[in-house]
Design a protein around this nucleic acid. Structure first.
Lengths: 244, 244
DNA sequence: ATTAGCATTATGTATGAACATATGAACATA
DNA sequence: TATGTTCATATGTTCATACATAATGCTAAT
């Protein structure tokens, strides 16, 4: 911390600078081993900024469970128990949202296909019924992250000519009066085959997080059958089992 | 909001009072439909408190993804997309931690059992080797939440006489010099049988979140084989797939 | 020796003020 | 019509300050 300086002229807000500083600081073995961090007042004075700003920065790390504070005692690095690093992915997407960096579509393909047995029994429709199939490759600017395949129940009224570049669930709600709620999910890990490897810009045999999902309306009627293939590097996945 | 008053004499901090107020406020249909909340300055003036305190309260909800703020525009309720309510469980446990309310053991049973085939192959030990089996029923004051069964690799040096009421992984690190890191997890949902229903205080047939987990040391050698049966009501589970 | 109480320390809560910056609307100009 | 300009607005950042409260250890009274 000693050889670290705040740049008051930087476009980066002070609290973000301090946050970065703290992240680096707490990597040091002493702090990993449970030594108390310098106290807030001390840090503030040392960096020549307000205590509030230091707190604002530290709050972020507390929120991420990297730090634990104890009134009257001090602040230290959280025991690296199993829960550490847990919220990496969710907070990542949230931050992207906040900064306006959004998931974008790399490519979209819409087709009308004959539903296979699994889909027919899931959707409870006659065999050989045709359904809309949507394939999307999505990711950030730096590259694709997930490859989605979706099948939609005829009930949705979606057609082949639909503009699928708009946000999907928003579209369903607004234009087709269909509200959604996930009901069942299953996840597993698979290895990339040639097709997936090319799409996701990874090597054949690289790990992929595979998610199978049935999206239903509030009445628990299936709306969408969704297959997601995620690049597994640095990926944290969250499932919601809550019913209410 | 109008018929709401701040109690400066309450033991409850102001920001918590405001937080509660906001939670109630945003349940109203108008705000659910996208209407902007009253702005921070207005709320502050109205309640007779500082804007910072209002912000502190609102921050919590932003953090939970219940609210979204937009500079120069205002604050409104987040679109209830699929991610809403996602972090309920993790944030719940975190808050319990902060308040010192901890998971406690309802019952503990330790035994020495002959490892079955699955465990032997997983632990890479000879068939019929005996291993320590630990059964724990854990939860909060209001009742049990999870039933764990753990099998430990002989390498850990754990014995039948061990005091398992202490924190498990802490114990392994300090007393047995074994550091842990989860390596593989699988989760699924099952229905409660008679045994589980009795243990978890639920009805037979109620949903249970089943987690199978192999806990390894940093060298990726298996330490523990863990089966967890979680009450599935209001339960949100998070998996970390990241490797680094 | 044990305990009650006190001082110290660090975080927790709260205030009020000021300026920065993004947004969108109204207005003006080319 | 299209493009700037300005302005009001609401959130974002930062500051200095004050007091509350929990934890810890020391000290003095029992």
């Amino acid at each position: 911390m000693d050889n670290f300086a705040i740049d008051h002229n930087s476009v980066l807000p002070l609290h973000l600078q301090v946050e970065e500083m703290l992240r680096k600081l707490i990597e040091q073995p002493e702090y990993q081993n449970g030594k108390l961090l310098p106290n807030e007042v001390h840090i503030a004075r040392k960096l020549g900024i307000s205590r509030n700003t230091v707190r604002q920065a530290a709050n972020k790390l507390v929120q991420e469970r990297l730090l634990v504070r104890k009134k009257g005692v001090g602040t230290k690095v959280a025991k690296n128990s199993l829960t550490t690093k847990l919220n990496k992915w969710t907070s990542f997407t949230h931050e992207m949202d906040e900064k306006g960096v959004v998931f974008k579509n790399y490519s979209i393909k819409v087709s009308l296909v004959v539903a296979d047995k699994e889909i027919c029994s899931l959707f409870n429709i006659k065999e050989k019924t045709k359904v809309i199939k949507l394939e999307r490759l999505r990711g950030l600017n730096k590259g694709p992250i997930v490859y989605f395949i979706s099948y939609f129940h005829p009930r949705t009224g979606l057609t082949e000519k639909e503009d699928f570049s708009k946000p999907l669930y928003e579209k369903l709600e607004k234009e087709h009066n269909v509200t959604v709620a996930v009901s069942k999910e299953g996840i597993s890990a698979i290895l990339a085959n040639k097709n997936l490897a090319e799409k996701l810009h990874i090597k054949i045999g690289d790990p992929i997080l595979f998610r199978k999902r049935v999206v239903c309306d509030p009445g628990d009627r299936p709306i969408e059958y969704n297959l997601g293939y995620y690049r597994a590097d640095s990926f944290t996945y969250t499932i919601d089992i809550a019913k209410d």
